[in-house]
């Protein structure tokens, strides 16, 4: 698979976030915009993931999350995430990022303490899973940049869609 220099990637991402802050001037708007950008990346990235990983089907949500954490993060960020804290129904879990290349060299300055710097990841996961008919919610609950010891993404399954015939019989 095609690779790029990790530092260039990290710095490009950083300057993009910096530009968003300059343009939008409001941290919560930046968080929202990052999620939106991630979503648009995710709905495209899923096909690359499926084609290159030759993923056919996942038996259940647990298996899906496992693929995201082990294969997806490896393919696009050259890292992996640990999947923990499943709820009893198997519909919610946490992804722990031990190593996140996006946050290398990053410190949040004064006034940006509410910035979810890597919110793009939430959007990517949500967008990618939506394309395979899995509707989810995803958000950061812990963030190393805001003083936590690890970064934790909370992923919640909302619904699984089926394939419906898209046309009405009479038209």
């Amino acid at each position: 698979m095609e690779t790029i220099n990790a530092e260039i990637f990290t710095l490009t991402y950083g300057s993009m976030v910096r530009q968003l802050i300059a343009d939008l001037e409001d941290i919560s708007a930046v968080n929202k915009q990052l999620d939106e950008m991630g979503y648009n990346i995710g709905i495209r990235l899923i096909d690359e993931f499926l084609a290159k990983s030759k993923t056919g089907k996942c038996g259940d949500f647990r298996e899906t999350v496992d693929r995201v954490a082990k294969v997806g993060f490896r393919m696009f960020l050259n890292t992996t995430a640990a999947v923990t804290n499943w709820n009893a129904e198997g519909t919610e879990c946490s992804l722990i990022l031990e190593d996140n290349p996006l946050t290398d060299f990053v410190e949040l300055p004064e006034g940006c303490q509410n910035l979810v710097y890597c919110n793009v990841l939430c959007g990517v996961i949500r967008g990618a899973l939506e394309q395979v008919s899995i509707n989810t919610e995803c958000s950061f609950v812990r963030d190393v940049l805001r003083g936590s010891d690890v970064s934790e993404l909370r992923l919640k399954l909302l619904s699984l869609n089926k394939e419906e015939y898209p046309f009405k019989d009479d038209d």
Binding site: N40, I43, R44, D47, E48, A51, K52, K54
Partner: peptide, 20 residues
Amino acid sequence: NYIYGAIYVECVLKNPAYTP
């Protein structure tokens, strides 16, 4: 599968002008 992964993904999905 090749058409999907190596042609469609590379030329269409990675084209920034393409709207999914």
